[in-house]
């Protein structure tokens, strides 16, 4: 389907009803070119004074919203664009994402689940493929290999206690992390400290991937033999009642 940009924007607006927004009254749309175009393409219909998406319209709108939010993610995570330019650039960029490119971008970004504003990104076919390994730029910690790491791109943890807990230990955008193990729980090196996380916590952390920031377990230390380490003394840790 080749809908005009304006018609695609309208599709996205009408989609918001699926996410809990009130339906759009017909009076606001009647006579507009974009709405007429959607009617003609069989994507929208007028029901009881309100504009509603048809089945086809829902499909198209879902794809459009996915492109829009993926574009925003790309702008925010890879190109590091600020909040204001994000909206404008995102709006234009989405129209350049034809289906194959869309899946590539989605893979590149590690199949993100939400846009920078926290709205859900409808999953595409690429998200189910399990082909999560190749060519990712930003990926959730759970999709990294042991030994991979990079700087935290963003946290996808809602606004509840999980976000607060991650923030409190310094797992914030920009923090350097390396995945050290996935089992029996996730262990990440955060700077020079190590933290254990469960899968839910690890899922919330999206990383701008850099490969090999630290040799994986078992390698590297051999040539230094036993001189490379020394037991610390427990007392150093301080930790009185005050700690």
């Amino acid at each position: 389907m080749q809908a005009s940009h304006a018609a695609q924007e309208l599709l996205e607006t009408l989609w918001l009803e699926q996410e809990g927004d009130p339906p759009v009254p017909l009076s606001a749309l009647e006579g507009s070119d974009a709405f007429n175009e959607l009617l003609r393409l069989g994507c929208a219909s007028a029901v009881e004074g309100q504009a509603r998406l048809t089945e086809r319209g829902l499909r198209e709108a879902r794809a459009a919203i996915r492109r829009h939010r993926l574009a925003e993610r790309l702008m925010a995570d890879v190109l590091d664009l600020g909040a204001q330019s994000l909206d404008e650039a995102g709006c234009r960029f989405e129209h350049l994402l034809y289906p194959e490119l869309e899946d590539k971008v989605c893979t590149l970004l590690g199949h993100p689940r939400a846009c920078p504003h926290g709205k859900p990104i409808p999953p595409g076919p690429c998200c189910d493929h399990g082909a999560r390994e190749t060519g990712k730029l930003v990926a959730s910690l759970v999709d990294l290999e042991v030994g991979e790491g990079g700087r935290v791109a963003y946290l996808h943890a809602g606004e509840g206690s999980r976000l607060r807990e991650l923030m409190s230990i310094g797992l914030l955008p920009g923090a350097p992390v390396t995945l050290l193990r996935k089992s029996p729980a996730y262990v990440v090196a955060l700077g020079e400290s190590e933290f254990a996380l469960d899968e839910e916590m690890a899922k919330a952390i999206y990383v701008r991937v850099q490969t090999e920031t630290r040799p994986p377990a078992g390698e590297g230390a051999r040539e230094r033999g036993w001189r490379g380490w020394r037991w610390g003394r427990a007392n150093r840790e301080g930790e009185g009642p005050g700690d």
């Binding site: 427990a234 007392n235 150093r236 840790e237 301080g238 930790e239 009185g240 009642p241 005050g242 700690d243």
Partner: peptide, 25 residues
């Protein structure tokens, strides 16, 4: 926690403080 505050405190004051490894005890 675990940065050696209490040891420093003891070193500065010479007073004794109980040492515990767990944040939150």
């Amino acid at each position: 926690p675990n940065v050696g505050k209490s040891v420093l405190f003891n070193g500065l004051t010479g007073a004794y403080v109980t040492v515990s490894n767990y944040p939150g005890t």
